[in-house]
Design a protein around this nucleic acid. Sequence first.
DNA 1: GGTAGACCTGGACGC
DNA 2: GCGTCCAGGTCTACC
Length: 323
Amino acid sequence: MPTTLSITTPDDFVLARDACSYGYFLLEPNHWDPQTRTLGRVLTLGGGSASARIDQRRDGRLRARFDRTLSRAEQAEARDGIVRMLSLDAPASDLAEFHRVDPRWGPSGRGRLFRSPTLFEDVIKTVTSCNVAWPSTITMNRRLCEVYGARSVAGGRGFPTPAKLARARPETLRARCRVGYRDARIVALAGLFRRGAIDVAWLEDPATDDDEVFAFLKTLPGIGPYAAGNIMQLLGRYSRLALDSESLRHARSVLGMEGTDAALMKRLAAHYEPFGRHRFRSYWFELWDFYESKRGPAHTWDKHTTAATFTAAQLAEPGGRRG
DNA sequence: GGTAGACCTGGACGC
DNA sequence: GCGTCCAGGTCTACC
């Protein structure tokens, strides 16, 4: 009999708001259904892949229905993955402090950011989002799952494991997944994860210093200042900004800043300085708010139409070229 | 420490 | 329909 898990959530948790809070919810193997407000994806577990459909019940608890029976160990694994994706383990005191520091987000309750079940998936997704337009990021993740993801009973495919990508030939990765020059970097990253050269527990330990984590991330192949800043927030560390060309557009069109790119980067850093260790969330929810002001709440976005062109560069400039 | 150019893809544009 | 141009972040070479 297929397994169904019931997962307790914090009182302030809202699936539609908190799952649809960061662009990765639109990337394979994630599937958000706006009609049923259900999050679906294939999870890679110890005994193989399993397809999960997650919805929120009236009492607030999450119900995760799988396409096969999970062992006890797999149930624990699946639960951990779902908790990580939805930031269910974010300390209430941390969210309360964020809302004190930046009261704009208190009424809506925003504070959690969607992420992947594993750090490995978050790192690879970040690499596929660098130096590329959003539609290409969508394509890369879809093909990575199609080509290297394990199939579940229901037929869907999960995200590739480090072992699978570490064994991939860069040329194949490039040709079949359209990852371009990122090919060797993705294989190298997968190898580091597979060999245990990346100490995930150390990176996720709140006691580890943010500066040390940031410095380490920048030593990884394909990870520069932007990617490292983004991976920081995916680790639940919001003290760094992940500034890119989208940030510059935000600075000019929403914040009304003027000047060269370099000058704007400095002004943005100063602008978010007052939010201290929560600055990324203050920045991100401003950006997200802008997207939603143009296209409606994120939980209503259709993955294949609205969501494929949701970045602000296009929203701000009708007919704009970049995603 | 700062800067320029290459890396690759896909969409926009001009013809 | 085809060729060209360009955005996007990281990496390397060079000053």
